[in-house]
Computed example of a mutant assay.
Amino acid sequence: MTQSPPAQPDPETLAFSEAERAAVYRAIAARRDMRHFSGGEVAPELLARLLEAAHQAPSVGLMQPWRFIRIRRPALREAIAALVEAERVHTAAALGPRGADFMRLKVEGIRDCAELLVVALMDGREQHVFGRRTLPEMDLASLACAIQNLWLAARVEGLGLGWVSLFDPVALGALLGLPPGAKAAAILCLGPVPAFYAQPMLQQQGWAQPRPLSELLFDDQWGAQGC
């Protein structure tokens, strides 16, 4: 079936105002992976707004592979914290000489954040081949876009968000009753924070330094940097 071209949009709907553009770039620059939270709560209407922003993310083949699980029981939150702590110890051992430095870093805010969410990939993903036949990992890329939407929306609402990836996905999946084929991909700590980091926390702590874009941008071939 031949598709008709889309209607020509009103030029006024294409552009954002200078203030709107500045706000978007400010949110991107000010976003931080937060580890320090100050308890409190997230109003239900605000949480719904943030999750709707996440749900508006692009996804390959419009498969919308993200599934959000809101953790509400304190005992379940504690069990998740225990899984993260176990992986933290394993990671420190794998880091060898840097293990002791790693153990001094605060890597999560599970017990302190107002809301705890687990984001999982859906089951039955093998049925979706649109855009995934040669790149099956595009389901995870789509999920990451949803998290980024949530991250930026939280930042403009004055809330912090931290992405925790230190866990065994099989163990977390069993804890949350994920069906076969589904996979836990992220633990998200969300809520009020005492302050936002002036720089990424790992940079502030001297763990790593970000590289400039100029070192990561090539022309035509890998490693070929422009003038």
Rank of each mutant, 00 (worst) to 15 (best):
S214N: 03
M34N: 00
A15I: 09
A184T: 06
R211Y: 06
V60F: 00
V164R: 00
P136L: 03
I187T: 07
D219M: 07
E52M: 08
L172T: 08
A48G: 14
L83W: 06
V107Y: 02
L116P: 12
A92W: 03
R155A: 04
R26I: 01
R32L: 06
I28A: 14
A30V: 04
A184D: 02
A171V: 00
I110S: 04
I69P: 00
H55W: 08
I28R: 11
V170S: 02
T2C: 05
D33Y: 11
L117T: 05
A171R: 14
P169K: 02
E137P: 01
V170P: 00
G131N: 08
T2M: 10
Q56D: 04
P192D: 04
R73Q: 15
L76G: 02
R98L: 08
P74Q: 10
A7L: 09
V156A: 06
C145W: 01
R26T: 13
T91W: 02
I187W: 05
A198H: 13
A75F: 01
L176V: 00
P65C: 11
L159N: 03
Q199K: 15
L140H: 09
W151I: 04
Y25V: 02
A146N: 01
R70P: 00
L14A: 15
A19R: 13
V119D: 00
V107C: 09
R49Q: 13
E137R: 11
P212G: 07
A171E: 06
D168E: 08
P180V: 02
A30N: 10
V89W: 07
A185T: 08
M138I: 05
Q8H: 12
A120C: 13
D139K: 03
R98D: 09
E41N: 13
I71W: 06
A195T: 07
L176P: 06
A224C: 10
Q203H: 15
A27K: 04
D33P: 13
Q205G: 07
A224I: 02
I80D: 02
H90A: 15
V24N: 04
L121R: 14
C113K: 03
G131H: 09
P9T: 12
D219A: 15
H36R: 14
T2R: 14
P97G: 08
S17A: 12
P136Y: 05
L117S: 04
A81H: 13
A54N: 09
A94K: 10
M34I: 10
I147T: 07
E12N: 11
A53Y: 00
A174S: 09
L116E: 05
C189P: 06
A81L: 11
R133M: 04
C145M: 14
P97C: 06
L175M: 10
P5G: 10
I69V: 11
A93P: 03
L135H: 11
Q209W: 00
E18G: 14
S59I: 08
R111A: 15
P212V: 06
L175Q: 07
V42W: 03
L14T: 12
V118M: 04
Q199A: 15
S59T: 14
C189N: 01
S214D: 12
Q209T: 13
A53W: 02
P9E: 03
G40D: 09
S59R: 05
A19V: 12
Q148C: 10
V170M: 01
G206Q: 09
I69T: 06
G40R: 12
R133D: 05
S142M: 03
